[in-house]
Simulated scan of single mutants.
Amino acid sequence: MGIIKVSNIKLYAYHGCLEEEAKIGSEYRVDIKVKADLKKSAKTDKLVDTVDYVHLNHIVKEEMAIRSELLEEVAQRILDRAFKEIRMIKKAKVAVAKINPPIGGNVEEVVIILTKKR
């Protein structure tokens, strides 16, 4: 078993419950960590035998582009799609952070973390 992490994916998106968030958007950060059997790819040196982190990044970017009111829903979509498209993933964890959320205080970020297991 091995781990592949794609960290600090920075995006601009339009998630949130407030109308202003749909109009002006906000900065987000996404981290995704997957567990898979990487023994074969460690021997073959072939991309087809591993979890392609370019594919993970692509999934994150596409799902973050779809507006949601809640970060939980976005995180779940990212997990569901990763499991559907990349069969060798055994377990995954995704963290979606809204940077400087509009919650009436000096808050650096709000983070939603979800995990899924096959």
Results as ranks from 00 to 15, higher is better:
residue 23 K to W: 12
residue 6 V to K: 11
residue 38 L to A: 07
residue 85 E to Q: 13
residue 73 E to R: 15
residue 86 I to M: 11
residue 21 E to H: 10
residue 40 K to S: 03
residue 86 I to W: 06
residue 80 D to R: 15
residue 103 I to Q: 02
residue 10 K to E: 11
residue 97 A to F: 08
residue 46 K to Q: 12
residue 116 K to F: 00
residue 101 P to T: 04
residue 22 A to V: 08
residue 60 V to A: 08
residue 86 I to D: 12
residue 31 D to V: 14
residue 73 E to Q: 14
residue 29 R to N: 12
residue 69 E to G: 04
residue 77 R to S: 06
residue 75 A to Q: 04
residue 58 H to R: 15
residue 77 R to G: 09
residue 54 V to Q: 09
residue 81 R to D: 00
residue 68 S to N: 13
residue 118 R to T: 07
residue 93 K to R: 12
residue 80 D to G: 08
residue 18 L to Y: 15
residue 67 R to F: 01
residue 79 L to M: 01
residue 65 A to D: 13
residue 100 N to G: 01
residue 32 I to G: 03
residue 104 G to E: 05
residue 11 L to M: 13
residue 66 I to D: 00
residue 13 A to Q: 13
residue 102 P to H: 10
residue 24 I to S: 09
residue 50 T to P: 03
residue 34 V to K: 07
residue 1 M to V: 13
residue 57 N to W: 07
residue 94 V to L: 10
residue 96 V to D: 08
residue 85 E to K: 15
residue 60 V to I: 14
residue 88 M to F: 00
residue 55 H to E: 13
residue 55 H to I: 06
residue 81 R to L: 06
residue 110 V to G: 01
residue 116 K to Y: 06
residue 70 L to P: 04
residue 53 Y to H: 13
residue 20 E to Y: 05
residue 52 D to G: 04
residue 102 P to D: 04
residue 6 V to C: 07
residue 1 M to L: 10
residue 82 A to E: 05
residue 116 K to H: 08
residue 83 F to E: 01
residue 45 D to L: 10
residue 116 K to I: 04
residue 90 K to Y: 04
residue 95 A to L: 01
residue 94 V to A: 13
residue 63 E to I: 02
residue 118 R to H: 12
residue 92 A to S: 09
residue 103 I to R: 05
residue 53 Y to I: 05
residue 14 Y to R: 12
residue 98 K to N: 01
residue 24 I to N: 12
residue 37 D to C: 08
residue 98 K to M: 03
residue 37 D to M: 09
residue 84 K to D: 05
residue 110 V to P: 01
residue 63 E to W: 00
residue 65 A to F: 01
residue 94 V to W: 02
residue 69 E to A: 12
residue 22 A to T: 14
residue 81 R to S: 00
residue 117 K to S: 15
residue 111 V to E: 09
residue 96 V to N: 09
residue 33 K to L: 02
residue 58 H to L: 01
residue 82 A to Y: 02
residue 99 I to N: 00
